[in-house]
């Protein structure tokens, strides 16, 4: 049912990765992705794949489930590989058939792009699989707290994200009901020309917007009734506090960076 859709799905499991502070996971994922782009050689990818495998093992999420996350981007992946394979120019021709020309450089570029994209998607989805949306917002709020100094309303942004997460499933279900109700009044959403179909969205969008505004208004009033007046002076029921495992995780990230640099230098020395 629509109500069960969650953004960036969470996979419930008891593991050390699940228990990590969301700030560690956010920072770790961010660094991991940046490094994928900086160290784009065999060593970089090998280590990145190894690191990914270790984290997956520790997270206790079945690999099959994680790989499923690639399905929606399969087309994009193939397209990227395809373009790199055929359009990257190089000198070492492997195969030539008419205007089709595959070079060693093209093949290498395609493989690297493919691997990078796969690791990028898998790495970031691993973060959402192991972190509840609430935890993620908490992590963003506290982790980006320093941006307050630059007048970025981090608390408000985090609150909005959290409320959006709560209301998206409700509004999705409401969309479903409104669509059915308008179908009962003779609107055909499946057939007809593009223009007609676009016009048919009006009887859905207008009630949906009205409902969203009504809900927003109600919620604002309910929040005020519960003495909400912004982030100032608020305490936290679940404050984020670093534990020993979080410090250890940060240390591992540093080790990872060091290994990448060391391997890269060594590789450069020999080649």
């Amino acid at each position: 049912m629509l109500r069960d859709i969650t953004i960036g799905q969470y996979y419930r499991e008891e593991s050390v990765i699940h228990r990590l502070d969301p700030r560690v996971k956010l920072a770790g994922t961010f660094i991991y992705i940046i490094l994928l782009f900086i160290f784009d050689n065999i060593w970089g990818y090998a280590l990145a794949t190894l690191a990914f495998a270790v984290v997956v093992k520790a997270s206790r999420i079945p690999l099959k489930f994680i790989l499923k996350g690639l399905r929606p981007i399969l087309f994009l992946l193939l397209l990227t590989v395809f373009f790199n394979m055929f359009f990257v120019t190089g000198t070492h021709v492997i195969l030539q058939y008419g205007i089709i020309r595959i070079t060693w450089e093209g093949l290498k570029s395609a493989a690297f792009m493919g691997i990078r994209l796969i690791l990028l998607i898998l790495g970031s989805s691993l973060m959402t699989y192991t972190t509840t949306p609430n935890h993620l917002t908490d992590g963003l709020e506290k982790g980006l707290n320093w941006m307050n100094k630059f007048k970025v309303p981090i608390h408000e942004i985090a609150m909005m994200m959290s409320i959006a997460l709560r209301f998206i499933p409700i509004l999705l279900e409401e969309t479903d009901i409104i669509m059915k109700a308008q179908s009962a009044r003779g609107v055909d959403f499946e057939h007809g020309r593009v223009w007609t179909r676009a016009k048919n969205m009006v009887p859905i969008l207008v009630p949906l917007f009205i409902s969203a505004f009504r809900r927003a208004n109600d919620l604002a009033r309910a929040m005020e009734a519960r003495c909400y007046r912004g982030g100032e002076g608020r305490t936290k029921m679940k404050p984020l506090v670093y534990a020993r495992r979080d410090r250890a995780a940060y240390l591992l990230v540093v080790v990872y960076i060091a290994l990448l640099i060391a391997g890269d230098r060594t590789l450069a020395y020999f080649l």
């Binding site: 059915k180 109700a181 308008q182 009962a184 009887p203 207008v206 009630p207």
Partner: peptide
């Protein structure tokens, strides 16, 4: 077969 949903006024547009 006309069907009036719950809170049908929410579908007025």
């Amino acid at each position: 077969v006309g069907l009036v949903f719950q809170y049908p006024e929410h579908q007025l547009f």
